[in-house]
Amino acid sequence: MIAFAITAAVAMGMYLIFTAGSGNIGYWSLSELIAAVGLGVVTGAVTKEFLCHRHEYRMANPLRFLLIPVYVIGPFFLEMMKANLDVAYRVLTMKIRPGIIRVKSGMKTDLGAFMLANSITLTPGTITVDIDEATNDLFIHNINLPEGDEEKEFFTGEELFALANLPAWIRRIAE
């Protein structure tokens, strides 16, 4: 029941966001509001086992999911900007030293590992190639390994980011 309510609310919210600006009740027309309720109920009934398949409801806490935009606009954007300028420099000078390293993410949940892996892929210069699903270790292709780093067996998530501690942020959001 909780799974159905959450899925229906998310679907309804998405539909309302897509159709904002269609009329005069708030920003919506009456027909769009009725369609949102109908589609939300149908979508919730059909897909509740996909969105909530573990039946853990930590992310329904608004303190957690409202932190996501703060994370994306703040520390994550800063890291992305630095990585973009770095890769732009590498494109122009061709000074590259690529390699695949193993990173102990230290994440306990699937969502945490997913968010960290996606944050790493979205910062240019690092791509998550594979995940060890038993230990949540990540295999990262790095475009420029510093001299001597190929000897190290493991890295920690914190070592990948120089400006902000993204793994700590993700732990705050998802665990």
């Binding site: 732009a88 690529p98 210069g125 190639v129």
Partner: peptide, 19 residues
């Protein structure tokens, strides 16, 4: 165009999309 293999090329294309 300039990078040597698939993985390094993918760095260039993710950069184009993100920024």
């Amino acid at each position: 165009l300039r990078f040597p293999d698939l993985y390094t090329r993918m760095h260039a294309t993710t950069k184009a999309t993100t920024f």
